[in-house]
Amino acid sequence: MSAPVKENPVNKYLRTERMPSIWCPGCGIGTTVNCFTRALDASGFDLDKVAIVSGIGCTGRVAGYLKLDSFHTTHGRAIPFATGLQLANPDLKVVVYSGDGDLTAIGGNHLVHAARRNADMLVVCVNNFTYGMTGGQVTPTTFRPAIASTTPYGAYEETFNLPRLADSCGAVYVARWTAYHVRQLAKSMGEALNKKGFRFIEIIAPCPTLYLRRNKLGDGLDEMKFYREKSVIKHGADTREVNLDFRQEITVGKFVDRERPTLEEAMEKQMTKTLGSKYVPYQSPGKKPAWS
């Protein structure tokens, strides 16, 4: 007896003709994408109105695999591209999906300013502690004294505590999960998708080929088991208390969930207040399709 062969529910969100992905066996990025599609599924959004923007790197390839309007931009610049896209077409729901090197090093300035001005986007930051695509260099999140190809004698810089960074800059939603926490992550992504303003989710994920192997930490599965063992869920934790360290406890959970006027709302409010009836609000090109 055989059951009718069903389509993988994730397929409708994927450019299946582009599979298999470039991601290594045991890489966690695909798992996060899987969770993201489940969150989209649950959101009930019109997928035609969801745009995904990535920078450069392994996680930067997410945009190319998702069957949404998708933009694979330049290194570090996904956030300002997304800001422009959203301001010019406020009918879109814009998601930035990129890695730790892209978003927090080369793109760090955009990250802090987009959070400060509460630009309306969900930023998913897959943090695998390394630049995977270029061969495993040190990033702002690489722990001391991990080995990277550009810290062959061990990393020695202080790392970013990303939830604290996003929180202190004004993000309205801040969460951290690992690739192990698939159900919580999918739920958290769903929550974040349904909020407005600058939302930030950090996902700790294994890079087996460059980070784990070089540091003799096993393969992707070993790392996922490590997350299971070392993670502690602390919703509402003070983000000053959620710093990560090499092979130490991983605090995960939803840390920040608050309301603040978005960039667009603040802009509209100020213009209306100052200009009154002279103000001509922006007409979103998203109100009707170009072919209509």
Binding site: M19, S21, N34, V182, A186
Partner: peptide
């Protein structure tokens, strides 16, 4: 479908089939 959620290569998924329908 926990397997489906974990799979980084979109290569496995699970679902429930009602026995009456099956």
């Amino acid at each position: 479908d926990t397997c489906g959620l974990y799979c980084p290569d979109f290569s496995i998924f699970g679902y429930r089939e009602k026995l009456e329908q099956a």
